[in-house]
Design a protein around this nucleic acid. Structure first.
Length: 295
DNA sequence: AAAAAGTGCAACCGCCCGAAG
DNA sequence: ACTTCGGGCGGTTGCACTTTT
């Protein structure tokens, strides 16, 4: 059964937000939080659909958004993460505090993609979609397939983290309400205690299918390590060395740094990438290295 | 100076997932 | 067990702005 549209289209405004609308939204969220996006516009006196309000808030109005140009390090981080995660913008955004998935997506499509030689882009895409996204059954199917591989790749702190409904307890600061989804993930996961993680690890076992179908179970604590340029001493150039280091530590004979740095090698060494992920993800929880440890 | 082409980015759309009823 | 709802995600679009011809 098809679901109803997120909002009745009639009478709801679309298009660019006016400063007045922004003000209404910000004021309302400051006062009441955003426990229910659907009801929010009505209560706030906005003629917008809840989805639109959420988007406006998470992508533009949130106080913790870092605006302005991306630094070289941020761009490198995006490129590296994209090589690992594919078009998982929210997961990438989770590693870049203050940046939104939408912003990162835009930057990727407008700047970064052009920097990379074609094969690299393709391989990165293939990493997650395993389908030719340039043709064929289009969005719907591609997305479905992607979600399969998404599961396999170890979802970004999965939606059970993301999908936390704001409550009086988790809206900690009405002035700085729940950040965007990806940051919720970061916050909720990165502050989790070890024991919590251990508990989660049992729950977070995901079924593998599609591309990563061969990967045995692992938990998504892996993603909890924030790769923030600001928050860690790790520079983005170090990302490749992470894999290399890890591979070296896991008895791989062939350095895999090239897999991440050399576009051609990425394609040529896709097996290495498989190997890398396999090793990484099959490690027992308590042996799962932090990125910082791998340096 | 004007038109065309390119670029950047905010916003929308459709789909999926998990929770709640 | 099933349906509905709300929220989140990634892809895409529309349009203002900038650069090139």
């Amino acid at each position: 059964m098809g679901r109803a549209p997120c909002c009745e289209k009639m009478g709801l405004k679309k298009g660019p937000w006016t400063p007045e609308e922004d003000q209404l939204l910000v004021n309302y969220i400051h006062l009441h939080g955003h426990s229910n996006w659907r009801a929010l516009p009505k209560h706030a006196g906005l003629l917008r659909c809840g989805k639109s309000c959420r988007l406006r808030w998470t992508n533009y109005l949130r106080p913790d958004i870092k605006r302005g140009n991306f630094t070289q390090e941020e761009e490198d981080t995006i490129i590296n993460l994209h090589q690992m995660l594919g078009n998982r913008w929210s997961a990438i955004a989770a590693k870049l505090p203050g940046r939104t998935d939408n912003e990162i997506k835009n930057v990727w499509h407008t700047h970064l993609k052009k920097r990379l030689p074609k094969p690299e882009i393709d391989s990165a895409t293939a990493m997650t979609t395993t389908v030719d996204t340039t043709s064929g059954p289009t969005k719907k199917r591609a997305r479905r397939l992607k979600s399969s591989s998404k599961d396999g790749i170890s979802e970004d702190p999965p939606r059970k983290h993301v999908n936390v409904r704001p409550t009086s307890s988790n809206i900690r600061d009405p002035i700085s309400p729940q950040p965007c989804t990806s940051e919720v993930s970061t916050i909720t996961t990165s502050t989790s205690s070890t024991s919590e993680n251990d508990n989660c690890s049992k729950e977070n076992v995901v079924k593998k299918e599609g591309y990563i179908g061969e990967f045995p179970e692992f938990n998504d604590d892996f993603w909890m390590e924030v790769l923030s340029v600001e928050d860690t001493a790790m520079s983005t150039e170090d990302l490749p060395s992470v894999s290399q280091c890890y591979l070296n530590n896991s008895s791989a004979t062939e350095p895999a740094a090239a897999c991440l740095t050399d576009s051609k090698a990425v394609a040529a060494h896709s097996d290495d990438m498989d190997f890398f992920w396999y090793n990484l993800l099959t490690r027992p929880d308590d042996h799962l290295p932090e990125f910082s440890e791998m340096l």
